[in-house]
Every structure is written in structure tokens, then in C-alpha cells.
Amino acid sequence: MREALMAHARDVLTRYPDPNSAMLPLLYLVQEADGWVSPAGLEEVASFLGVAPAVAESVASFYTLLQKRPVGRYVLQVCTNLSCSLLGAEHLLDHLGRKLGIGPGETTPDGLFTLQSVECLAECGQAPVLQVNLDFHSGLTPEKVDALLNALRKEAEQDV
């Protein structure tokens, strides 16, 4: 485990009766640091917990929020389950895809946006809904989505 993550990783261990419970928290930890769970990240977590890398990989592969490929700076996760679809989520996903020039599962060439279609986000009362890096945006319309994209682009520019 790299030095920068060591203190946090040790702290995670204190929260559970069994160190294996730290698996998901540690996979999240490397994902936060690297943007995704890379093979190197898997190995790091596995060696910290004293398990084979294949064990960490098998766990990581089960969970959709752990990104197994590099993703963009902003991960847009659009709910397309029933209550959101009833209120236009499929339209919205198409609209976003056209605006970004990518399909679900893809990342824009500038590395800014990844578009994903996801299942119910437990915010159906304000459908349609999406998350940007796990922040909720609800009651969406194509106009609101355009404004959101602009705001994110501006934020990214200011950071350079």
C-alpha cells in the first residue's frame, strides 16, 4: 500500500472485527486516488489484506460502482429504471449521448465525461434522475442537462 493511503487504510481496519471487511473500503480508497481500480490497485489492496490478487479482482468484478477501466473526470450515471423511464429517462440518455458524442459506457476523448446507464437510484419521486460522481441531480429536462454539462465544463476549465 502506497504511503499516502496507509494511514487511512489502517484506520479502516479498526472499524471491523475482521480485516477482510476492509476489502470494499480499500477498493474505494484506491479508486478515489487513481480514478479507477487498476490491476496495480487491486494488487495493492490484496497484498495489504494478505490475500491473492485474484480474490480482490473477483470481489471488484461483482460491484458496478468499482470502475474496472479508466473513466472520465465526471461519471454521469443516468437512471433508466422504470419510474425514470416513465418520465423520459431514455430520451435523456440519448440526448446526453448526442451532446457528448458518445454512447453509454464510453468516455469522451478529452477524458472529461463518462456516460453510464444505471439502475434505480432510489430517488424516483423526482424522476428522471442522474448522478455526477455520486451527487444527485433530479427532476431533469434536456435543458437542465445542458446547463449541467456547461457548469461541469466550466468547473473543469477553471481547474487547469
Binding site: 470481489v59 461483482f62 460491484y63 444505471v118
Partner: peptide, 24 residues
């Protein structure tokens, strides 16, 4: 303890597996 994207982990025994650091 944060899950990581899996409906099945809401089933109580899958939840326990997931809590213990395994597949759900």
C-alpha cells in the same frame, strides 16, 4: 459500510457476505 452497486446485496445474507468483503 458502503456497498458498491449491487441490488442483490440488499438480500440479508448477501449483505452479510458483502459486509465481510466478499462477492454479494
Amino acid at each position: 459500510h458502503r456497498g458498491a452497486g449491487s441490488y442483490e446485496c440488499g438480500e440479508e445474507t448477501a449483505l452479510l457476505e458483502s459486509l465481510e468483503g466478499k462477492r454479494g
